[in-house]
Design a protein around this nucleic acid. Structure first.
Lengths: 147, 147
DNA sequence: GCTGAAAGTAAGTTTCG
DNA sequence: CGAAACTTACTTTCAGC
């Protein structure tokens, strides 16, 4: 693991808040020179601490404000089943996140769709059509407290 | 809701993949002029479709590769309890996300810490100290399939 | 809503202390 | 690590369609 000093951590928190800040702006807030900040950012990118930059979207404005957490249990846990399921699930555009988890279910999926009818349609037409699905359990998001 | 044409959607998907692309690069991929792309991006920002830009981090390189989903039930659901709990939970730095959800539990939290001992410490010293906590149930991430 | 050109700025490199 | 000068590239505005 790479050595990160306090300035690195502060820098990371700044670019997390707003990745579009110029080196100059960052330098001011860190009380460092332009060059120093520039090289730190490059180092963090090079070492893979910062893996990329992305735009944050308002799901409501995109008509995808309905969020569900879907727990999935596979029918049988052969290596092939697992691989096939995982390959298929990442291709579903409604699946924003997918984690292999401990507990009663094997996977937890975070699903973005427009509304409940769209969720039902997703379940019936897409999710339950995935290979080796055993059963599922859905929990719906009522509100986001921290995201 | 704002009207988004196909070009907007394509543009959104491009800046989601890499927010640091220059207008020129985006213009090439969209087969539009520099200015046209520039104005579309500004429009999406102004209308609040794009709410910001952030850096993506490698949690492992940050020493926070242990992920848990913690379900929380409150002791009693008075309006004050809910407000107090929500105010307190967002302040915990280990809590990356917090959702109010349907089902057996009231909230689902996504927790980032270094390892299992750190998780135990978080539970004992921080989470169970929050106001109005009823009980909790933790599910651990074994692996990330899509994030 | 688009294009193309011009003016303004920042990024990125280099050299030096 | 920081300052300064410099080249290159991008951003932003504007007139015009």
């Amino acid at each position: 693991m790479m050595q990160l000093d306090n300035t690195d951590l502060k820098l990371i928190s700044l670019v997390q808040k707003d990745a579009k800040q110029t080196t100059k702006q960052l330098a001011l807030q860190l009380e460092l020179s332009n060059t120093a900040v520039y090289e730190r950012v490059r180092k963090l990118e090079r070492e893979g601490v910062i893996t990329g930059y992305t735009a944050l979207l308002d799901r409501e404005k995109l008509g995808k404000s309905f969020v569900a957490f879907c727990h999935v249990r596979l029918a049988r846990h052969t290596a092939d089943n697992v691989k096939e399921f995982e390959r298929a699930v990442v291709r579903l555009t409604e699946v924003a996140e997918c984690y292999h988890v401990s507990g009663d279910y094997d996977y937890m999926l975070k699903i973005f769709v427009a509304d409940m009818p769209a969720y039902r349609q997703f379940m019936v037409e897409k999710l339950t059509g995935l290979p080796h699905i055993g059963n599922t359990h859905s929990v719906f998001m009522i509100g986001g407290i921290k995201e």
